[in-house]
Every structure is written in structure tokens, then in C-alpha cells.
Design a protein around this nucleic acid. Sequence first.
DNA 1: CCTACCGATCGGTAGG
DNA 2: CCTACCGATCGGTAGG
Lengths: 195, 195
Amino acid sequence: MITKIKGNRKQQIIDKATSLFQKQGYAATSMRDLASYIGIEAASLYSHIKSKEEILQTICFQMANDFFNSLEKVESENLSADIRLKNAVASHVKVLTKDSAASAVFFSEWRHLSDKYLKEFLDMRNSYENKFIQILIDGYKEGVFKKMDAKFTVLALLSSINWMPSWYKPEGQLSPEEIAENVTDVFINGLKIRS
Amino acid sequence: MITKIKGNRKQQIIDKATSLFQKQGYAATSMRDLASYIGIEAASLYSHIKSKEEILQTICFQMANDFFNSLEKVESENLSADIRLKNAVASHVKVLTKDSAASAVFFSEWRHLSDKYLKEFLDMRNSYENKFIQILIDGYKEGVFKKMDAKFTVLALLSSINWMPSWYKPEGQLSPEEIAENVTDVFINGLKIRS
DNA sequence: CCTACCGATCGGTAGG
DNA sequence: CCTACCGATCGGTAGG
């Protein structure tokens, strides 16, 4: 039996790079670092990838697409705003926890993308945030959410979730579903006991 | 009149470094970069600082101390938990917005500290988070907050605030006080209309 | 604060 | 996938 190792090498490079970029940051990770972890020479990496930045691009846009697609599915269901917010948070957390190392890189290393990709990336992020903002505005119109600064609230909401990759461990006590539930509960209901 | 430029040079180096570390990251900022922005040669920097890392240490521990002292003042006032939470958030936002570039460096570049300082830094951060956790636990005991995962909630709360330096501009519409009020309101009262 | 310079390391290429 | 190597750049020091 011939094992398909060849096609996996590129993915192996990307996976190891993801882990190193998360731990040390993109700029502080050298191609020699990466190569030695994989067990080949640095020069050999370039048979599989074009450049160091290409690896970062792959990680960032893969994650961006996952987030986007996941959110679009939620939107297509056309439910009431509070349920949609709940589902959107759940979908966000699910994508995030599926590969928390890639998520961490996605959230903190994107600024090392070169101009063209940086612009594309920021456009996608902006558009993603706007979808959340729309849910909050809809909720206000539907009379289920208070009047608020929707953009501010969305940034606070996403930030509180996005920090997770820095402490989330799959073997921890909280499942992705519980995390989503906790976050949604705090943001929708607040901490105060309702009287 | 003789202007005291000599004593200001070190601060000027730290300020410029703060700005560059925020924009490009610590690892991607070279001492030559920094020197040329200041208008001297790279070698001349070392008349004022011992090493590149010393600059990072100065920024990180300066901010850590500011956060710490500010929170201790809030705690010494011995108020009820919900008011203390409100004040703690306000104090945190105030420190954060006073120098948002330094805050951004503090939050995302600390991992480049060498072992000894890294440990010290993480100990301080842990102890800071624990003070917030204690406020939530007190709030539960006092019957003003719901039963919740206090650690999780604090991490979500601090994360949502700490992301701010990436978008906060002093000339923006929201004052530090309004930001603190918005954050506290969401976390304490939630988005849902109380019925 | 500068000139001159150090050894180490960087991302990447040529050619096999 | 390797050897051999490129030019560029890194943090930092010596000596003035």
C-alpha cells in the first residue's frame, strides 16, 4: 500500500506554521524554525509553498471564509433577531473552537499581510461585523433589544469571544456550545438578577 | 534658556517604540527603524537603553502598574459589588484610554518578554483578573448578581474592553466615561428589554 | 551621539 | 528534497 504522504506535506507545513505563528508570532518565526520542526531543510519548504507570507494568507483567508460561510447559513434561516444573535454567536464559537490555533493567528497576525491582501482581509472583516450589527438593529426594530450603540456592542461581543483562543483548550470543561450559551446569556440577559 | 532635552530622549525613544510596536509588532520593528524615526543612528540608542527588550519591559510593566494601582484604589473604597464592578471597569477603561498605544503593546506583545519577566508579567495579570473575579463572587453572595462562571465572565469582560485600543481614537465620539458606561450596562443589564 | 564593525540570522534561489 | 549559497538585515559593541 502506498500512503499519500506527498499531498499531505503542504498541509503539514501549514499546520506546523499555524502552531508556531500562534506561539511566537509571525515575524518571530523563521522558515528555518519551521523546517526543523518538520524535519527538512528550510530550502525544501519552497517546493511546497511560494513564500512565508503565502502560509499566512492561507491561514487567514481559510478562517475568514469559514466564519463567513457559517454566518451566512445562520442568516438564511430568517428567524427573529434574538434567536439569530444566539445562532450567530454559536456559529462563531464553533468555527473558532474547531481550530483555535488558526483562529489565534487569524486574529492577531493579519496585520503582517501585504497591502493587497490586507485590504481584502479588512473588507471581509468589516462586512462580517456589519452582519452582526444588522442583527442588533433588527432586534431593536422588533422591540426585543434596547436602544444601544450597535457597532460598539458588536465589537465588544466579538472581542470577548475572539480572545478565547488564547485560553481555550479542547480538553477543558466548557464545550463550544456551553461557551456560546454563556456569552449569549451575559450579553442578552446581563449579570443582574431580574426583579 | 536651556531646554532639558537630554532627560527627554529616553522617554522619546520609548514613546516612538510604543507607536512602532503597536503598528508593526515588536519582532517586526528593528532598532534601525526606531532610530531613523528619532533622527539618530541605531548605535546611539544604546546610550539611553540597554536593549530592545528593555523598552518592551518598560512599556509592559508601566502599564501593568497603572492598571494595578488604579484597581486597588477602587477596592479600598469598600462599596457594594455592582458599584465596585462599575468603578473597576471605569478605572480600567480610564487607564486604557490614557495611552491606547501603550495598552495595545501591553496586551499583544508581552509574549516577547524573556522568561523571567514573562513569569512576573503573567503573575500580575493573573492577580489582576482574580480581583475582578472576586467582585463577581461578592456580587453573587450579596444577591445582586446571578450564579455564573465568574472566571469566564471576567475574561469575556476584560477581553471586550481590551480590544478597544485597536479602534479607540481620542478624537472619536465616545469619551472614556461613556465607553465604561456602555460596557457596564451591557454586562450588568444585558441587551434585552426588561419586562 | 557617530563611524565602523561584529557574528548571527533572515527569506529565498540555483541547480541538481 | 538537499547542498551551497545570495544579498540584506538583525541586535549590539568598541572606541572615540
